[in-house]
């Protein structure tokens, strides 16, 4: 199994750190990003195989990014996992065609399982 790129975008540094720590177990390369405005260029540069997106982020929110991805032909089929502590998270994720939704706080095994399922 070759190593894949996983781009994680969350405005909270703590969550970014812990996600990176956990997902290292999968053996994939983790690209953590705090600023949602950089996601677009990171997708172009790093060609991630999976994106993990927080929903509520300042300036550019997760659903806006997801919308951009789903309407850009080149990235349309990119697997995206939406993560959120918001009650409406799952609804918004579904409405914007996220590949999966994981509620915060997440369960370790569930997270790993979802990631493995998508790449």
């Amino acid at each position: 199994m070759s190593s894949k790129n996983i781009l994680i975008c969350d405005d909270d540094e703590g969550i970014l750190d812990v996600l990176e720590l956990i997902l290292e177990e999968t053996g994939h390369t983790i690209i953590p990003e705090k600023n949602s405005l950089n996601v677009r260029s990171l997708i172009e540069k790093k060609m991630p195989d999976l994106i993990i997106l927080d929903l509520w982020m300042p300036v550019l929110s997760g659903d806006q990014i997801l919308q951009m991805i789903r309407t850009t032909p080149a990235y349309k089929h990119l697997p995206v996992i939406m993560i959120s502590a918001s009650r409406d998270g799952e609804q918004i994720a579904n409405d914007h065609f996220a590949s999966a939704f994981i509620a915060k706080p997440f369960d370790y095994d569930n997270l790993i399982a979802q990631v493995r399922k998508l790449i």
């Binding site: 909270d12 812990v18 720590l21 956990i22 502590a85 370790y108």
Partner: peptide, 24 residues
Amino acid sequence: LSIASHELKTPLTTIKGYMQVIER
């Protein structure tokens, strides 16, 4: 309350994540 609960859950997510790492 939505915002408060979201903000409270954010650090909790980190804590729970680390706890799970420690357990494993």
